[in-house]
Write a protein that binds this DNA or RNA. Sequence first.
DNA 1: TTGTATGCGTTATCAT
DNA 2: ATGATAACGCATACAA
Lengths: 344, 344
Amino acid sequence: MIQKKITIKDIARKANVSIATVSNVLNNKGRVSTKTANKIKQIIEQDGYTPNLSARSLKNKNSHLLSVIVPYLHKGEFQDKPYFWQVITGIESGARNENFHVMLTGISDDENLSFIEERHLDGIIVIGIDKNSNLLEKIINLNKPCVFMDSYLDDEKLYQVHSNDRLGGYLGTKHLISLGYNKIILISGITGKIKKQSGVDYQRYLGYRQALAEARIPYSDQLVFEEGQTMVNGYYSAQKILGCLDDNTAIFVLSDIGAMGLIRGLNELGVTVPTDISVMGYDDIFYTNYMVPSLTTIKQDIFNKGQKAIDLLLAQIKGNSLEERKISLPVELRIRESTIKRSR
Amino acid sequence: MIQKKITIKDIARKANVSIATVSNVLNNKGRVSTKTANKIKQIIEQDGYTPNLSARSLKNKNSHLLSVIVPYLHKGEFQDKPYFWQVITGIESGARNENFHVMLTGISDDENLSFIEERHLDGIIVIGIDKNSNLLEKIINLNKPCVFMDSYLDDEKLYQVHSNDRLGGYLGTKHLISLGYNKIILISGITGKIKKQSGVDYQRYLGYRQALAEARIPYSDQLVFEEGQTMVNGYYSAQKILGCLDDNTAIFVLSDIGAMGLIRGLNELGVTVPTDISVMGYDDIFYTNYMVPSLTTIKQDIFNKGQKAIDLLLAQIKGNSLEERKISLPVELRIRESTIKRSR
DNA sequence: TTGTATGCGTTATCAT
DNA sequence: ATGATAACGCATACAA
């Protein structure tokens, strides 16, 4: 039952050629007559030979394996992050097209990256890393093909993909202002990022400020809340902002998931969206259009973002030089039911 | 800059021993004096040596790599399946604890499984495969450690994990009946499964029938709808069932995601949940508790289910014989806002 | 155009 | 207790 795996040696014997010739056929190195090539191909087909990737990897020092790394995502925390799923889905899809496989790797606190070298990974994609973290330094020192998503790193040498977060923050804020509100609460999804002036949330915050400035609405620190990035965090922030609410107020949450939690939280406090208050989110994850009320949000094409990242990564791996190492994708305002015109 | 990777040979030279000794230390084969062992360990630590897994894999024919396979999940379809993500999160978490990595692999139509052997994968976990598919046969023929989730396969030799779906169907139906309804619409998430009498949905259907029978409510084929398993499918089923609704009616959707879509669809048709009609879901994905209205559902501990699967798989890989090859996990009714007592 | 021989880094068998 | 060496399956430099 346990049949030994077929190797190029077996194929070579059967075809009365040397293993080198078989190898050449396998890798399309030319230098083989079409006649013997065909014979060999046929035998390969017939016997269902497939290469041993471990051996190949040992020899070539590559693996056709990639890894997606999400820093500071602890065990079990993947489940309520639809944004990540969507990115990863895009990555996996693009990778599969090019015969690469994707490993899903949460990074624990120990920040142990040894598996990247041990497994001869061909490249990695890092989502949302902080520009001052020492994990970043570790990763750069690996000297592996790498793409950073949603990270806003200063180093011009690094390959990066993100959407136009500043514009997103601007468009969202402007939308709320245009509805007649002049007190816009901003709820950030990632704690401390705005203060540390880094990451996507800071960019969105800059857009927020720009829109305020254009409308000549004075900025107030009191209206900016930095909560965590989960649904539960959004839920609890309802209580914190309850005191701020009046007819003039609208809320911009920098993630859909946070907005969902917030809406639920407000609801339990007797505040209904959008009749009592307008709330908008950010990301346009799959569910926003099906909520009741459906959620006004900033749409980014998350799936496409994942694909762009994999494109960048594969280009590096294949050694194609790229003009532009930084890709910024468009964003778009999606007006739905959760935001309405100010009534009075 | 490109420093060659440190190998066992380098360590051996530095320690004035042979590579065999280093290898023995590495693998705790004993037969090495504690003195030299310690010296070697120190050098390993100092130089930051990590083993080359490709070489190891070539030699040992294993890889410490697992794969999760979701049949018939096409490219890009991962994103709106919170259930899968939750399972996978559990799997990844359990794997990481045991130093295994997880590859995420959607299977395309060609059903090409060659990567499993090519990469010397140590095992695979398959979610929701049909008992009559030829993919199943292919997988069994691989003769690899394998765990099937949510599949209800007859072969007693196979390792399987699922929750008590029949009970779930029963509890949900009974709940709706107990609220005073005697016309229970059942919306299945997977097309054709009930007719083909296979899979989780068929089990839940059996529970549904059992609950009806106990309550002496006649069963009607007209009330059972087989839609697809996405949110959009749930959304469109609203129109299809609109004609069936009356004061006596409640709806049991066999997935939360479908229930969400349905509730939205009903809403657009002027039907409000729960005041106009009670709707319940199945799975208890992370969002159900935060919806407005929150969703009554059948809770299964999805994360735990993933962990149980990985436990079963690792036991096989390590050659531990197991008494019980089939694990059935409990389910639980979670009553929330989307179902209310019949008013008249 | 094809074959021979070597090495990738590891484990394991057999000596010493 | 330790060392020499073969083997895993493949790719490639070099020879023929």
